[in-house]
């Protein structure tokens, strides 16, 4: 009887372990495929040209493989998104953690979560069909596809990430620290901005970096609203192309497989993967540091 029970438990354990392994194998599988195609690509194109060139025309007759215009587009949109998401997300987090009554929180939080649950394709068309016309009425030179509308809408898309991770960090600041500040005659605003936020800074930084990594990887909004013109520009009203949007463009187009143009998407994908990986690692260390301080 006992033997059978032990056997049962072991079987369950093995099965669960195998399921856990699936995600590990998937990750390695993706990295493997990316790596393989990327190596093929770099056999034909120099890695220096790829990383430093400022013209990206692999789909044209005169092929240039400088990835910087795509990186420029990605960083431009991500930076714009952060300008929207950081202040709003942090303020929302401070409100929910320090000011909101239990009732206000219980209303607000689900709304933030709904924001996080909207499909990105909806955000994309929202940017193209709602935000861009507004921008056009303010700045007439705005192009039909532009970085700014994608930035703004993406900012709202990642706002729940910033707000919720920052709020966790703020709530993790021990009560004793708030009490110490109140006991010195601090007002609520002084406690929130000068004690709680600085104490939670590494956690807030982790939230920001996580959000940047999501902004870099975000695809649908930029594919729909930001355009398909790889350009070295800092003007957000112009049409640009991000790394993700380029991958979509090639994947959905009629570019023949095995061609060098087709292989570019793996090289770009690899670079994208490395960028978000670095961001996630930095975020991980920030989170770890902030956990160490108060436990």
């Amino acid at each position: 009887m006992t033997n059978r029970r032990i056997l049962e438990q072991k079987t369950v354990l093995v099965i669960i372990f195998l399921f856990a392994l699936v995600s590990v194998f998937t990750t390695f599988g993706i990295i493997g495929v990316l790596l393989q195609e990327t190596i093929l690509f770099f056999e034909q194109v120099s890695i220096v040209e790829f990383l430093t060139g400022t013209r990206w025309t692999p789909l044209f007759a005169s092929k240039k493989f400088g990835v910087l215009p795509l990186v420029n587009g990605t960083v431009l949109v991500a930076a714009g998104a952060m300008v929207v998401a950081l202040p709003l997300g942090l303020l929302a987090a401070i409100y929910m953690s320090e000011y909101a009554s239990t009732r206000a929180r219980s209303v607000l939080k689900p709304f933030l979560e709904i924001l996080a649950g909207i499909p990105t394709v909806v955000y994309g068309y929202f940017a193209l069909l709602f935000v861009t016309p507004i921008l056009k009425s303010i700045f007439p030179q705005t192009q039909a596809f532009n970085a700014l509308s994608a930035s703004i809408v993406m900012g709202f898309m990642i706002l729940p990430t910033v707000a919720s991770v920052s709020e966790d960090a703020l709530s993790a600041v021990p009560r004793s620290l708030r009490e110490a500040a109140y006991a010195l005659g601090a007002t609520k605003a002084e406690v929130a901005t000068q004690v709680v936020v600085p104490a939670a800074l590494s956690g807030i930084a982790a939230a920001f970096i996580l959000a940047i990594s999501r902004a870099i990887g975000e695809t649908m909004i930029v594919a729909i609203a930001a355009g398909q013109q790889p350009k070295m520009t800092l003007n957000p009203l112009e049409s640009i192309e991000t790394m993700t949007a380029y991958i979509v463009q090639v994947s959905l187009g009629d570019t023949p497989h095995q061609s060098i143009a087709y292989q570019t998407i793996f090289a770009v994908g690899m670079l994208l993967f490395l960028m978000t990986l670095v961001m996630n690692i930095i975020s991980y260390f920030f989170t770890k540091r902030f956990r160490e301080v108060y436990e």
Binding site: E179, A180, L184
Partner: peptide, 20 residues
Amino acid sequence: PVEVRRRIGMVFQKPNPFPK
């Protein structure tokens, strides 16, 4: 209450210096 706490200070059970 902020004015009250300024004039009546408090030291807590567990030392709670600010992380400054």
